[in-house]
Design a binder for these strands. Sequence first.
DNA 1: CTGAAAGCGCTAACAC
DNA 2: GTGTTAGCGCTTTCAG
Lengths: 349, 349
Amino acid sequence: MPARPTPASAITRPTIYDVARRAGVSKSLVSLVLRGEPHVSDARRQAVLEAIEELGYRPSRAASALASQQTRSVGVLIDDFHNPWFVELLAGLRSVLDPAGYSASVADLQLEAASGRNPVDGFLAQHVDALVIAAEPDPGLLQGVRVPVVVAGVRELGPAVLPGADVVAGDDERGGELATAHLLDLGHRNVGHLTGRGGPAAHRRRGYEKAMAAAGLEPLVVGAGGGTSEQDGYSGALELLDCRPPVTAIIAANDVMAVGALAALRERGLRAPADVAVVGYDNSPLAAYHYLALTSVDPRSREIGAEAARTLLARLQNPDAPRRHALIEPTLVTRPSTAGTRRRQLHEP
Amino acid sequence: MPARPTPASAITRPTIYDVARRAGVSKSLVSLVLRGEPHVSDARRQAVLEAIEELGYRPSRAASALASQQTRSVGVLIDDFHNPWFVELLAGLRSVLDPAGYSASVADLQLEAASGRNPVDGFLAQHVDALVIAAEPDPGLLQGVRVPVVVAGVRELGPAVLPGADVVAGDDERGGELATAHLLDLGHRNVGHLTGRGGPAAHRRRGYEKAMAAAGLEPLVVGAGGGTSEQDGYSGALELLDCRPPVTAIIAANDVMAVGALAALRERGLRAPADVAVVGYDNSPLAAYHYLALTSVDPRSREIGAEAARTLLARLQNPDAPRRHALIEPTLVTRPSTAGTRRRQLHEP
DNA sequence: CTGAAAGCGCTAACAC
DNA sequence: GTGTTAGCGCTTTCAG
C-alpha cells in the first residue's frame, strides 16, 4: 500500500531518519546523541550535530512521548494568573526543572473553571509525568490522579485531600509571627489583623494570634470568612479603625489587602506610618512601589518553587520514598509603611 | 519478538483498543465516536461512550498528534507574566479557542530568556498548529517559523518582522488621543507625557502629540528611550514637575508608570487631581484600587484576544486568505485621579 | 560501539 | 455503516 499523502497543510519537517542519512549513521545513533549518551565517538557525534543544525531538525515531542511513555513535562496548576506570586514560584520551579530536561505546562484554575473544564484532565491527557498544585482546587479534581503530585505554596491541601502528595509550602504561621513581632518591637500594642478565606490566610492569622498572645495582648481580627481582595482590605480596615481603643498598626493577609487598608486610612484622614503602621504579605511588586512602600513578609516563593521541583524530581526517581513536607522560612522586608516608631514622619529615606 | 515490558513506573492507562473491546466494536469506530462523526448508529455510540466512562479512558494527545499531524493546540507567547494585561488577552483567546477544540499553551518570554531557551523552538517541538505572539520578541526568534502566526496586542511587529502574520492590536494611538482629549476637556493646557521604549509606548505618545498639536499646544515628553517601570514613571514625573510652566496633568504610558508619578507628586507636596491630574494606560487592577483610583485607557485586551483567536481559526481554515490587520478601539475609564477640573478636591465620590 | 526491527496509541485511507 | 491495515517519528531491546 502506498504511503498516505501528507496533508496539504502539513509542514514536512525533517525526521530523525533524515538526520541519520545526512550524517551517514543509523537512526539509533542519532537518538543516542540526542539523549546525550556518552558512548558515542566524537567524530560521529559531531557529524550528527552538524546534520541537525543544517537540517534545522527539531525532535517531535509527540513521537518521543509515545515511544518512551513519558513526556518529561510537568503540569503546574496555578490559582489565578492575576495574583503574581506564581511568577516567582514558576521561576523557581523552572530553575530546577529546566536543567533536568523537564518542561512545565501552566494552567490557571480560574480560567479553566470559567471555560467549564477540568484542568487536571487536560494535564492528564497531555500525559504529564507529574503535577504541581499551587492552588486550593476542589478536592474532587485530584481524585484518581495517578502521577506524582507536589503541593507547592499551599500548606492545607496536603494530608487532607491528597494522602500521597509531597508538600512544599511557605511557613505562613511563622510569617504572621514575624510581622507581628516587628510591630511589637516598634512599640505598637494595638495591632489589628485583616484576614479572609483560605488556608494561607488562616495560618498567617494563627501566627499573628500566637505572637499577640505571647506578648500578653488581645488579638483583634477582622474579615474572617470574607474575601482577600483590595476591597475586602479596604472595608476591613475601616472596621478596624472604628475600634476602641484605636489600632496603631494593621497586618493584612496579603499586599493587596494592605493597599486597601491604606485607602481606608486616607479616608479617615490618617497616614502610614505616622498614625497607623501597615504590613502586607507576599512582598509582591506592589509592595515595592514608591507610592505604597509596604513592609511585607516575603514567603520566598522562588525558593518554594525550586524546592518543590527538587522534591518532584526525587519522587520521580523513587516513587516509594517517604512523603516530604517542607516548610520554607519567610523573611520580613521592611519599608516606610512601618518606618521608625509610631508618630514618626511619613517620608523616610 | 516479544512485546517490550512496560516500564515499572508507567501507569498503564486504557487505550482505544480496550474501549473497543469493552464496547464490542472496532478501534476505528471508537475513533469516529471520539471525533464526533455523525455516521455512527446511536446504539454503538452509546456503548462506546459507556465503555469510555467505565474505563476512565482519556485519549492520548501524543498518539493523536503523531497520527494526525496536528495537535489542535496553539502556542501563546507572552512578554512577562508580571504584567497582568495578558490575563484578559488569554481569557479572550480561550473564549474562542476552547469551543473550537483548541487548547492554548502559554510561555513567558522573560522566563524563557532567563533559562536561555528559545520559547518558539519549544512551541515548535510541541508541534503547535499556530502561534500567538503577544510580545515584541527578538526578530530572529520568529525566523523560519512555518505555522500561522497572529500578533496580538502589539502593533509594531507585524509587517516588519513577520511579513505573513495577521495582526490584531489595540489602537494605542487612539488611546493616547482619548487620554489627552479628556484632559484638555477638563481645561488642562500644560499636559506632560511619560513615555518609554517599545511599540505600544511609541503609539500612545503619537496619539498624545497629535491631540496636543490639534489643540495648538506644545507637547512635553519625558522618558523616551528609557524603561516603563514604576521607577521610570517616578523619575520621569519628577522631571516633568520641574518644568516651567509647571504641568497640571500627566499622561503615563501605562498604569505602573502612573503610580510612579503619584509618588513623585507626593514627594513634591502635590496631590492628584487637586494639583496635578494623572492618567494611566491599560486599566489594570491597579488602576481600580481605592488608594490609586487612576483614570486609565482600557485597551480592551479581552476583545483583542477573542478577535486574535477568530483570526487564527480563519487562517487555519484558509491559509491563503489575505492578511488581516485589525485595530481594536480603546475606551477611557475615568476615576478620581482626573476627577473634576483643576484645583478641585481629592476625595471625589 | 552500531544497525535492524518492533512497537507506543492513534488516525485515515480503503475494503468489507 | 463497520472492520482492516498501514504508518506518524521516535525509543529501545538485541544481535552484529
